[in-house]
Amino acid sequence: MDIGHRLRTIRKKRGLSQRELATRAGLTNGTISLIEQNKTSPSVASLKSLLDAIQVSMAEFFATLEESSKSKYFYTAEEFTEIAPPDLDGPQAQLLSLRQLGNAQEHALQLLHERYAPGADTGPELLSHDAEEAGVIIRGQIEITVDDAVDTLGPGDGYLFNSQLPHRFRNTGTEECEIISACTPPSF
């Protein structure tokens, strides 16, 4: 997916200049320009800030089209939509993967298959959105910050919290962490 082009299209559709979007999202005008030209890739938290500023959820931004005339119940692994922005700089590529099942805008639930390489995180800025989220760690370990609480969870452990609380995910371990998570309503 061409994140820069999609962001530019939505920004213009909303009648916002790069400068206005930058101000609303707490970023620099130059950063917006670089993202829209695909010369840099935003962190998950930065992209979330940008999308919040234009009132678009991550689910909507990365929505895949489902045929409205026929319900779809089953998805192959290849049909999941990657909603973590790709890192265009190379060495950080594939550190974080957030794969969404189906088109979350068509459902009341957003389901993600998450993978965090050692050292990967959702970014230095804490995330916040209108929903509740929960997940179960399948393998590896993940440090989760929710408001002022921090804990490291491993296989079989889970979490459940109000997503309006500032939160962050970070793999502090030595192996990849895999999580199955859900968010309702879809707002990430």
Rank of each mutant, 00 (worst) to 15 (best):
L7V: 08
I32N: 02
L47R: 05
V146C: 06
T174R: 06
M58E: 07
E125G: 14
I144C: 13
Q141I: 03
S43N: 02
L51I: 03
F80R: 15
D89P: 00
G4L: 03
L127F: 12
C183L: 06
E20P: 01
T122E: 04
A77K: 13
A63P: 00
M1T: 05
Q18P: 01
Q105F: 03
T76F: 09
V146T: 09
I142V: 15
D148W: 01
D147A: 15
V56S: 07
T31S: 14
L34S: 12
I144G: 15
S69V: 01
Q105P: 00
G140K: 04
G123L: 03
T31I: 01
E67R: 15
S17R: 11
F61C: 01
S68Y: 04
Y75N: 02
L27R: 02
C177A: 15
E60N: 04
L65K: 15
C183R: 02
E176M: 06
G90A: 10
C183G: 08
S181V: 02
M58I: 06
E176Y: 02
E78T: 14
M1I: 02
L7Y: 01
K12L: 13
E176I: 01
G154R: 06
L27S: 10
L101M: 13
G15V: 02
I142L: 15
Y159R: 05
P42M: 03
H107P: 00
Q164N: 13
S68D: 10
E175A: 13
L153S: 09
